[in-house]
Amino acid sequence: MNLNYLRVFIEIARRGSLLEASTSLSVPNSTVGRHLAELEKELGMSLVIRNTRHLSLTEDGKELFERASHLIDNISEIENDILYQNNGLTGKIKIAIPNEFSAQWLSECLASFANHNPGVSIDCSTSMVSVDPIQKDVDVSIIYLRGKPDDSSLVMQNLMAIPSVIVGSPNLIKQHGMPKSVSEMAKAPCISTLHALRSNPWHFIDHDEKWYTQNINCRYRVDSSSMLISAAVEGVGFAIIPIPFCKDLIEQGALTKLELDMKPAPLQVAAVFPNRKISTRTRSLVDEIRKTLHVKINQNSLETHSLII
């Protein structure tokens, strides 16, 4: 069996389209169609059903894809490892990152990685909210969350836990008082996220490192860290904010840190992979992201000693 033909078929099956497969493989659409036809001729069976709207696999095609996709992935990984040993990293990395997070924390890291690895091409997609942990056609997604992930089956690598604080403006505290316990937060006006992270309940950790949750009164919800911070400074409500994002405002007196009986859960940053077959180039990029995060946190944190890794 011609492995090049098989590789093309696997890509067609994954993309659901000859055109998308040709784009992914960077070969002409006519070549993709010809290789598929040659593979079907070689095997003596039809592998796909074509119509005007979409492409689907025959039963034989489904069986071949199920049995051969891991083989092709393993061969590609072996090829990449050999090329890396001889010529450095090669191939394409598709990464998804939350928009504000990428601009503020990782833009220089990704550009530097691309510059130092000319054999690697990078496709980076960004979103205004926390990205879908499992995206199709992405090698790795960088996500953030508070608390434990809902899906324990995720192939996830924790990169950083950014310590956070609950803050309020002086005017807000003057009007509503200074909460001293987590339970008091239930009646206080709060600001939280809309879709990104978990807006309600808030997650806390006690002195014994046990996790607790507290429902809060969210009267203002946004999916933008800059809008959330602006609302907190304006006095709209109390907010959980990562320390590096509000350090200067606390020092300037624009925001006041609350001292509660528990600390808010840190902002977890993690890399999520579609499966456990992670290429060398993707691992290398994720490692650079992890190093960058640690450097930035140590430069900006008010409480470096409280970092939870």
Rank of each mutant, 00 (worst) to 15 (best):
L47D: 05
L57A: 11
L106M: 06
N171G: 02
L39W: 07
N200Y: 04
T90G: 00
T90E: 06
K257T: 13
V272W: 09
V27D: 03
L154S: 07
S152A: 14
I49D: 08
I72V: 15
G33E: 09
G16W: 02
G44W: 04
F9D: 07
H195N: 11
T213R: 11
K62V: 09
K296Q: 13
N217L: 13
N171Y: 06
Q85W: 07
D223G: 06
V295H: 07
A254D: 15
E100V: 01
I243L: 11
H305L: 02
L145K: 09
L83W: 01
T193F: 15
V165M: 11
K257C: 12
P266M: 02
E259Q: 14
G33H: 08
V295T: 12
P98Y: 06
Q299M: 04
Q214G: 05
V165L: 13
E66I: 04
N275S: 15
H294F: 07
L19Q: 07
D261Q: 12
F9V: 06
T304L: 00
I278E: 06
P179E: 10
G235W: 09
R276T: 13
G91A: 01
R276Q: 14
G33P: 08
I243D: 14
G119K: 04
V236Y: 10
I93Y: 03
W105G: 01
S183C: 05
M156P: 01
S112D: 15
I134T: 14
D132T: 15
I97P: 05
A37W: 02
N4H: 12
P244S: 08
N4Q: 12
G61M: 09
E184I: 12
G177C: 06
E11C: 15
T52C: 02
E66P: 01
A13V: 07
C124I: 13
N86L: 15
F204P: 07
L172G: 12
G61L: 10
A96G: 11
